[in-house]
Nucleic acid binder design. Structure first.
Length: 503
DNA sequence: CTGGGGACGGGGCCC
DNA sequence: TGGGCCCCGTCCCCA
């Protein structure tokens, strides 16, 4: 074997992980050999770390230096994956990262990072009642969902529940562990030093963050084969771009099924904001502001996809409080404050509601569709702004000459589903015969054909009736879940989360 | 090609 | 906690 590049006549040797190779070769793939190999490999990496051999990454935590291999960190942590990605390194030198690949953290202690680093290289996570919260916070910061889930399991197992429930749960979980190892090769085994520690699957109470640490006992979570940790994480990294390459909750023997947040980016509906923007704008260019409500007329498969997206979003939200609570210093805060960290990125906010709002940029949830053009928005205020600007001509500015106008001194011009104002002078210049004009917004209320509301009845004096276009009236029977925002001119259509990209 | 404006997304924060 | 407002950044369109 020789170290080569793909220049000249020498061809680059491709790793055998490609599908073509798998089909072309007959694998001698006994499970124990694979396990032994992974174990050996991880031990070697750990030894190299201890000897500082080939360590090409430095992590500084409150002045303490940790040496590690960047490829291992890359494979283990969504944060490091973002930090160490070639694109990131080329595009911009992030504040915490220098040319020699070093990162600086102040959000957690060196001891905590040492635990996490040990886990990365060994599969052993030394949790105690005193460190579990900080480890969980650090894991959240570093986007290591597997560690988060271990902490959750640790905490849950430490909650006091009835002896009967304890026995039933333990029996159930142990039986589960016995059934599923073939499907969960990295299944965790909970080693409880204190046999009296209750084991349960109830969710941690809100007071978790100020819990009485005396209830939690020292526990160590281990992989069945601890030395598989890094290879397993590396393998998972192929399928998730930011979730930390963790082991799924199903691999955790004491984890219940509602931890849908694990590997959230491994799902089809979590599209990054820039990607969504590009996709959405592309769609807008191809079919700008369709007057037809595709929400109503979507084929069943699209509606099914939306339904699944909504369920996924619900799962994400359901698991929110136990994941994102982070106590520490962020940015330039002088005082440690409680903040909520996004499980998908490094963003933190002061309020959970703000985080919920922020999460929509990750989940793709757009619960506010415009009834006029079917464009969907993440916020009601965005929908309102869009509707007033695009469909109601609320701006008292002439579209053509940009001069300020009044409602009385201007005309509303229709262009498809769009409406805008033009001053009398510009109307004269363009020519009335080329325009579809109205006498201002108030004229909308006087148009009988446009006064049809949700039920096809006249709706009084509110101009929101325009939102029900003539075409959409045909589909009124499908809009049983319409909800009106009585304070505005809008009709808020609470539907399953979706967006146009599904199509 | 470039600059300005519009539309939109997203964060902070107040009520 | 949700709604709403303000502000800013980004992207796209158009002159």
């Amino acid at each position: 074997m020789e170290m080569v590049t793909d220049t000249g006549s020498t061809r680059l040797y491709r790793p055998s992980g490609e599908p073509g190779h798998q089909q072309a070769q007959r694998w001698f793939n006994a499970a124990d050999i694979t396990v032994a190999h992974q174990s050996h490999l991880l031990k070697q990496l750990d030894q190299q770390r201890c000897l500082e051999l080939f360590c090409d990454c430095s992590v500084i935590v409150e002045g303490h230096l940790f040496r590690a291999h960047r490829n291992v960190l890359f494979a283990s942590s969504g944060y490091f994956r973002m930090l160490l990605s070639p694109q990131s390194l080329d595009r911009d030198r992030r504040p915490g990262l220098s040319d020699t690949a070093s990162a600086t953290f102040d959000a957690f202690s060196p001891d905590t990072f040492a635990l996490i680093l040990d886990f990365i290289y060994s599969g052993r996570l030394g949790l105690s009642s005193h460190n579990v919260i900080e480890v969980m916070s650090a894991a959240s910061y570093l986007q290591m969902n597997s560690v988060i889930n271990y902490c959750k399991t640790f905490i849950k197992s430490s909650l006091e529940i009835s002896v009967k429930e304890e026995e039933e749960e333990l029996e159930l979980n142990l039986s589960d562990q016995e059934v599923s190892p073939l499907h969960n090769p990295h299944q965790l085994r909970l080693h409880q030093q204190d046999a009296q520690t209750p084991v349960g699957s109830v969710s941690p109470p809100p007071a978790l963050w100020t819990h009485d640490g005396a209830h939690l006992t020292q526990q160590v979570f281990m992989l069945k084969d601890p030395d598989q940790a890094a290879p397993a994480l590396a393998a998972r990294a192929d399928n998730s771009d930011g979730g930390g390459g963790g082991i799924s909750p199903a691999h955790i023997g004491l984890e219940e099924a509602n931890t849908g947040v694990e590997d959230p980016l491994d799902t089809h509906f979590t599209i990054s904001a820039p990607e969504r923007r590009r996709s959405r704008r592309g769609a807008r260019r191809s079919a700008p502001y369709s007057t037809r409500s595709s929400t109503i007329n979507d084929p069943p498969e699209v509606q099914e996809a939306r339904s699944q997206k909504a369920e996924k979003a619900e799962e994400l939200y359901a698991t929110l409080p136990t994941i994102v609570g982070v106590i520490g210093q962020f940015h330039n805060d002088s005082n440690p404050t409680m903040r909520f960290k996004c499980p998908f990125c490094t963003h933190t906010v002061k309020r959970k509601a703000d985080l919920k709002r922020h999460l929509r940029c990750h989940t793709g949830e757009r619960p506010y569709p415009c009834q006029a053009c079917n464009k969907r928005f993440t916020r009601l205020e965005h929908l309102r702004s869009h509707f007033e600007t695009i469909h109601q001509a609320r701006k008292l500015v002439c579209r053509k000459c940009k001069c300020p106008v009044t409602e009385e001194g201007s005309h509303v011009v229709c262009e498809g589903t769009r409406r805008y104002r033009m001053c009398a002078a510009c109307i004269q210049k363009v020519g009335c015969e080329n325009l579809s004009m109205e006498e201002g917004l108030e004229g909308l209320d006087e148009e009988p054909a446009l006064l049809l509301g949700v039920d096809g009845e006249e709706e009084g004096d509110i101009p929101r009736s325009w939102m029900m276009s003539m075409e959409q009236e045909e589909d009124e029977d499908d809009e049983g879940d319409l909800a009106e925002d009585s304070g505005t001119d809008l009709i808020i259509h609470e539907v399953d989360d979706s967006d146009e990209e599904v199509q």
